[in-house]
Design a binder for these strands. Structure first.
Length: 277
DNA sequence: ACACGCTCCTGAACGC
DNA sequence: TGCGTTCAGGAGCGTG
């Protein structure tokens, strides 16, 4: 599923229930995710108390009172399910955390991931800049650090196209294959353009489009193509707002020409050859 | 140091 | 209906 808006949606849903809740039990059914889930995850988290969850790139981070942070990555097919009960386990439910909130209500948080490209880990709060998955992550799209100057300094040293650059988590955190196409359509820039051909005005449009597209998608609960569900089971409704992703041979909303698809670094990339320059 | 394929895995959709 | 093939929203790793 998940790019920034989907991960943000899940993080917000978690925020509503985990804050100041006590971890009653951690049930681990599979440890062979993208990397091996640490053996001491269970004993580390149990009896600790969750604080306010937050997101970094496509990672969900939940700090605890004892000074740790639970890290969840959803990979391609991961889902978080929140229930006010402890339901029967379903296929691909790999990890389940039972919590109790301040008013003694029990909730279950279940990590389900058919393809197991995702990951669950914990780290110490002081190591947040050192963890191997977090240390090289670039700026947050909504941060003030995402500026023309920032992009210009990176792009002048690069030989790649803007589509690949948007997918590169070391530059901007959180953009994936769907939103890369959508952002470039909105910015009217062809995905194949080399980054060092981009002018100041182009960078400005890319930054503006990035913020707008991601913000709007979060508002709609993300995009459900296949897997993504919000933790309460609801779908994400940004799909109906997609302008180019998955629209091959459909009319462009800007000019009525047909949307094209080309494979860039093995990923489908959708664009309008007329609107995007 | 960088850019680019390859790869991990399951399931759904498609073609014959 | 059944079977084989292709494709999927991520991203680290090995290679050149």
């Amino acid at each position: 599923m998940p790019e920034l808006p989907e991960v943000e949606t899940v993080t917000r849903a978690l925020s509503r229930i985990v804050r100041r809740s006590k971890v009653k039990s951690v049930e681990i059914y599979r440890t062979d995710l993208r990397w091996k889930v640490p053996d001491d995850l269970k004993e580390t988290l149990e009896n600790d108390i969750f604080e306010e969850p937050f997101r970094r790139g496509k990672y969900i981070l939940i700090p605890t009172e004892k000074g740790n942070i639970l890290l969840i990555h959803l990979g391609m097919s991961g889902q978080i399910k929140i229930k006010d009960s402890i339901p029967t386990l379903l296929k691909h439910d790999h990890i389940r955390i039972i919590i109790e909130n301040k008013t003694n209500h029990i909730f279950s948080i279940t990590y389900n991931d058919p393809r197991r490209f995702g990951y669950v880990d914990y780290l110490n709060k002081v190591d947040i800049k050192k963890h191997f998955l977090l240390k090289n992550i670039g700026v947050e799209p909504f941060s003030e650090d995402l500026t023309k100057n920032y992009l210009h300094n990176i792009f002048k040293k690069k030989i790649t196209n803007i589509k690949n650059a948007l997918l590169d988590q070391k530059i901007i955190a959180g953009i994936g294959n769907i939103y890369a196409s959508e952002i470039l359509f909105k910015a009217k820039i062809k995905p194949h353009r080399n980054v060092n051909s981009l002018k100041s005005k182009d960078l400005e449009l890319i930054i503006k489009s990035t913020k707008e597209i991601l913000k709007k998608s979060i508002k709609k609960g993300g995009t459900t193509i296949k897997d993504h569900k919000q933790p309460d089971g609801k779908l994400g409704y940004f799909k109906q707002d997609l302008a180019v992703y998955g629209k091959e041979n459909k009319k462009c909303i800007g000019c009525n020409n047909l949307i094209e698809v080309s494979i860039i670094s093995n990923r489908s990339t959708f664009f309008c050859d007329y609107c995007q320059k």
